[in-house]
């Protein structure tokens, strides 16, 4: 009832939630899951990676943020390709009913395919691990951008298009001055969802290709039986994903205001 009694609830309550999960984790590792490292052991073993996050001690032994950086660069490449292909594709899908009818079924079939399925195909196509990973990221993260852009284009009120017609705007001007700004909020929702998927795919891609990055590090530490680092990687992936989503959310909210 009196949930707004104390002002710091937005920081205190999430903290309590984290504490609860850590306690549960500690209890689990002491009782039914003896292989699960305890929280304090995890902290101890992870310290060199966390305290010197950018240090490079060897090819497979680097600070956690250095690994994260490699992963982010790979994601950025794949994500950029996804946006460059997905946005125009979404526009065409939204504008042409015939195009939408032709390609919607195939998109719906390709969309749920797991990155683990695309990656071998990428390796076959490109022979090398990095382009294969980029291919997989682009292909998997493209769909939200495609579909949201298409929805946005279809949702443009007829009135806006009538304004363009009454003013005799050229096709190019209609695109730049009416269609693009009207679709932008939808497009950005797509961009945000796409970024989430791109980050999700990176781990799978790195695990299978063995390239350096958080995912690659995770897999390597599993093979080296250093289970504490698996947890370190999981937490890092989660935190980075959360930050990326929040950053995109900020931009998105600005656009939503402009839409209202």
């Amino acid at each position: 009832m009196n949930e707004r009694k104390f002002r710091g609830d937005w920081i205190v309550l999430p903290f309590l939630g984290i504490v609860a999960v850590v306690v549960l984790w500690a209890i689990s590792s002491k009782t039914w899951a003896p292989n699960l490292p305890t929280p304090w052991k995890t902290w101890e073993v992870s310290q060199p990676y966390l305290m010197k996050p950018f240090e490079k001690r060897g090819e497979l032994d680097q600070g956690i943020l250095r690994f994260t950086w490699y992963s982010l660069i790979l994601v950025a490449k794949g994500y950029t390709i996804a946006l460059l292909i997905g946005t125009p594709l979404g526009f065409v899908l939204g504008m042409s009913k015939m195009f939408a009818k032709t390609f919607d079924p195939i998109i719906q079939i390709l969309r749920p395919v797991s990155p683990l399925a695309w990656l071998p195909l990428g390796l076959v196509l490109f022979q090398k691990s990095e382009p294969a990973a980029i291919f997989t990221i682009a292909l998997c993260s493209m769909w939200p951008t495609v579909l949201n852009t298409a929805v946005g284009v279809r949702a443009i009120p007829q009135d806006y298009l009538n304004v363009a017609r009454v003013l005799n705007l050229s096709r190019m001007k209609t695109l730049l001055k009416i269609l693009l700004p009207a679709t932008l909020p939808y497009m950005f929702t797509g961009f945000r969802l796409s970024l989430g998927i791109a980050w999700l795919v990176i781990v799978a891609a790195e695990m299978l290709t063995g390239s350096p990055g958080v995912g690659g590090f995770l897999w390597q530490e599993y093979n080296s039986l250093i289970y504490e680092h698996i947890i370190l990687c999981i937490v890092t992936i989660g935190v980075i994903g959360f930050i990326l989503d929040r950053l995109m959310g900020l931009v998105e909210r600005r656009l939503q205001v402009a839409k209202a």
């Binding site: 009135d159 806006y160 009538n162 009454v166 005799n168 932008l184």
Partner: peptide, 15 residues
């Protein structure tokens, strides 16, 4: 543009 239309729902571009 010779016939200026004032729309019922204003049709202003919100951005």
């Amino acid at each position: 543009p010779e016939r200026g239309l004032v729309f019922q729902n204003y049709s202003l571009l919100p951005w």
